[in-house]
Design a protein around this nucleic acid. Structure first.
Lengths: 149, 149
DNA sequence: TGAATTCCAACTAAACCGCTCGGAAATATT
DNA sequence: AATATTTCCGAGCGGTTTAGTTGGAATTCA
């Protein structure tokens, strides 16, 4: 029950783009350096994000990537789902409500998986990149306050 | 972000044992058949549950397994954690608060992982096998009601 | 004794993870 | 026009995990 580096690096990269929103294209190299991610590997992840229309790219020298929507309109769920596929503790509660699971007994365990999935979805679908930017401001202010005590 | 069969089969097996709580040892063969799990594979999982003191075993003919505590005292979290290890979307929020994560930026993404982990923990630590037995009763009653309409 | 059952250790095929490598295509700068 | 920068694309790869299988030893009941 862990996300892979796809989701984790992907969110870091998207948050990095959010902090530079409106500044024109940001080169992958810079994102990779700031977030300490292999550039070639991040390239693959951001290709997925581009196909999901979450970022857009500018090719050529001075090119790079930028968010395709304002930070208010991109949720953590959008990012993670595009990189990790459907989120859920078990197949029988994944997005495309697939397959059997007709056993009386297993339906009860299914209830548990559904509750877990719902609680995760609630968090990731209600958190936007803009919220994360606010969080960062709060952390910054807190640190400054601490510094001056 | 999926549990492996360890956690999923393990919970099914434990719930099976819960439905037979107080009936003496239940043979693995029967659990495996009811829950449609490879017997030899389940053997490995239940060995882990035994080492975690969640079940106890009786060897020899007419032997089997039984819960080591009443269903009220065993949570879904106990079961899943013993089989899957620490639960959490990223290393930096796992149980043994390990390692770096000192980057200002990544701390914000860490907040997100922490919220996800908290919401999952809330669900799995507040659900006991006894709750699942109640759920099953509710499902049964509902089905009977539907049947008689 | 014989059958049933848990216990234990080793093996395995397939999938997935977390990359790396090499190069083509596009664009800005000089 | 040439060059440097950058995205785009596909292939490969070693290591780990998953989801088992196999074979047999030890224990206990009948």
């Amino acid at each position: 029950m862990k996300f892979s580096t796809k989701g984790r690096y992907g969110l870091k990269a998207m948050f990095d783009l959010a902090t530079h929103y409106g500044e024109g294209p940001i080169a992958l190299k810079n994102i990779a350096q700031r977030q300490e991610i292999s550039e070639h590997y991040l390239e693959q992840l951001i290709a997925t994000l581009r196909r999901a229309k979450l970022v857009k790219s500018v090719r050529g020298a001075q090119g790079g990537y930028m968010l395709n929507h304002p930070p208010e309109e991109i949720t953590v769920g959008d990012i993670i789902r595009s990189l990790e596929g459907p989120i859920g503790p078990a197949d029988c509660v994944m997005d495309a409500d697939s397959e059997e699971c007709m056993n009386q007994d297993s339906c009860v365990t299914r209830l548990v998986w559904a509750r877990i999935q719902d609680s995760v979805s609630e968090v990731i679908d209600s958190t936007t990149l803009a919220h994360m930017l606010e969080d960062q401001e709060r952390i910054k202010n807190k640190n400054n306050y601490m510094f001056y005590i």
